[in-house]
Simulated scan of single mutants.
Amino acid sequence: MENGNRIGSLSITPTVARQTPRNDFGTVFARSAQEVVKAGAGIAASLMPGNPMVSAAVASVSSVVSSTASSVQGVSAAGAGGVGGTAGKGEQWDLLAAQREMQAEGMQMNLAYMNLQNEMQAESRAHNAISNIMKVRHDSAKAAINNIR
């Protein structure tokens, strides 16, 4: 008697070498961060072409990201041995120094951003004040013309 639940003949393919490139998370993340910074730099430059503070901030961000990306790529290559693989003491200190440098530049960028916000708020307040004054003058002139009629 033949059972319908039997598996027919199996074919087993031999193992082949990996066809896709091996991409570590740190390398891919660093590359993505560089692309984001480049895109953001282009957008920021197109929105405010004459502002030297923005261009300086964009330049410092892209330099920090590229230096951090290269150090991250170095660490991912050093620690590629798996879970047990660790980076050397010198590389850890390099990462710590890069992180501190990035924090310092981040604080400078935050300060520049806050100054830019304060300037924009002052300009907005001046615009609102002038707008209100012009509205009052217009309303007064309109009322005077209506009273003459």
Results as ranks from 00 to 15, higher is better:
Ala17Asn: 10
Arg18Lys: 10
Arg18Tyr: 02
Thr20Cys: 02
Pro21Gln: 03
Arg22Asn: 10
Arg22Pro: 00
Asp24Tyr: 03
Asp24Ile: 00
Asp24Thr: 05
Asp24Asn: 05
Phe25Glu: 12
Gly26Ser: 06
Gly26Thr: 01
Thr27Pro: 03
Thr27Arg: 14
Thr27Glu: 15
Thr27Cys: 13
Val28Gln: 09
Phe29Ile: 02
Ala30Met: 04
Ala30Thr: 01
Arg31Gly: 05
Arg31Pro: 02
Ser32Asp: 10
Ser32Cys: 06
Ala33Leu: 11
Gln34Ala: 14
Lys38Asn: 10
Ala39Ile: 07
Gly40Asp: 06
Gly40Ala: 11
Ala41Arg: 08
Ala41Phe: 00
Ala41Met: 08
Ile43Trp: 07
Ala44Met: 09
Ala45Ser: 15
Ala45Cys: 07
Ala45Tyr: 08
Ser46Gln: 14
Met48Val: 08
Met48Arg: 12
Pro49Cys: 09
Asn51Gly: 06
Pro52Leu: 10
Met53Leu: 09
Met53Pro: 01
Met53Ala: 13
Met53Val: 12
Val54Gly: 06
Val54Lys: 03
Ser55Gln: 15
Ala56Cys: 00
Ala56Ser: 11
Val58Asp: 03
Ser60Phe: 01
Ser60Gln: 14
Val61Gln: 12
Ser62Cys: 02
Ser63Thr: 10
Ser66Val: 06
Ser66Asp: 15
Ser66Leu: 08
Ser67Pro: 01
Ser67Ala: 12
Ser67Glu: 15
Thr68Ile: 05
Ala69His: 02
Ser71Ala: 13
Val72Phe: 06
Val72Arg: 01
Gln73Ile: 02
Gly74Ile: 02
Ser76Tyr: 07
Ala77Ser: 08
Ala77Met: 10
Gly79Asp: 05
Ala80Val: 02
Gly81Leu: 08
Gly82Pro: 05
Val83Tyr: 04
Val83His: 09
Thr86Cys: 05
Thr86Pro: 03
Ala87Leu: 10
Gly88Leu: 07
Lys89Tyr: 07
Gly90Asp: 13
Glu91Val: 07
Trp93Met: 12
Asp94Phe: 00
Asp94Arg: 15
Leu95Asp: 05
Leu96Met: 14
Ala97Ser: 14
Ala97Trp: 00
Ala97Glu: 12
Ala97Gly: 11
Gln99Lys: 15
Arg100Met: 14
Glu101Leu: 13
Glu101Tyr: 07
Glu101Thr: 09
Met102Cys: 13
Gln103His: 06
